[in-house]
Design a protein around this nucleic acid. Structure first.
Lengths: 98, 98
DNA sequence: CTTACAATTCGATACTTATCAAATTATAAA
DNA sequence: TTTATAATTTGATAAGTATCGAATTGTAAG
């Protein structure tokens, strides 16, 4: 991964609201792992103090950085984190690989 | 670590030039580990295509996010990365801890 | 003390972006 | 087909920031 890609990932996590959105998706994915349920965005909208348009905007940036994967579920939108991206990023920053 | 702190760290790494600056410091710290030499900023200034004022600005942001530790060495400035910060960040994002 | 060099501060500018309100699209239910 | 809800798009604005040139400060060497 080059520095352009990595900085794009970091930028996606640099906004506090967007970071909390990401962590919430991660948390729900974890919590719902056994049940097989996914994280539905509509459940998150209420818990964050920003409007739906802004959340839509943030989701697109997270997806664009390959941090999450979204899929339509009828009227709703499901999201899950892309573990490969965050693990590859961590590896570079922690200098696990050179 | 709360999301405000973590987003600040991510923001510090969200600019490509600043990220490369960080990685360069990390690389030199690694390379000079055996010799005990530190990473001198003056050696980096030449290798990045931006002016000294901008580098000074970026360094302050990295230090302010606790990503690096700087120290004056006479006329020069030495920098080394703060491994604790990057490891704690990685842990949260990778959900190693909850 | 003067000179030279590394780094910082200051002021300005161009660019990016987070957020919202309003309008629109997509989908399921009635 | 109409209605209701979820999500997106659009347009606008306010706030933030990366970068530079010029001036300044800190420090060592001559």
């Amino acid at each position: 991964m080059d520095s352009a890609k990595l900085s794009k990932i970091m930028k996606a996590l640099s906004n506090q609201t967007r970071l909390e959105l990401y962590l919430q998706i991660a948390k729900q994915s974890e919590a719902n792992f056994e049940t097989g349920c996914e994280c539905l965005i509509t459940d998150i909208v209420g818990s964050l103090s920003i409007g739906a348009p802004t959340i839509s905007h943030h989701l697109k940036e997270l997806a664009n950085a390959d941090l999450i994967i979204t899929e339509r579920r009828g009227k709703f939108l499901a999201a899950r984190i892309n573990k490969e991206t965050i693990q590859a990023s961590s590896a570079i920053l922690s200098l696990v690989e050179k």
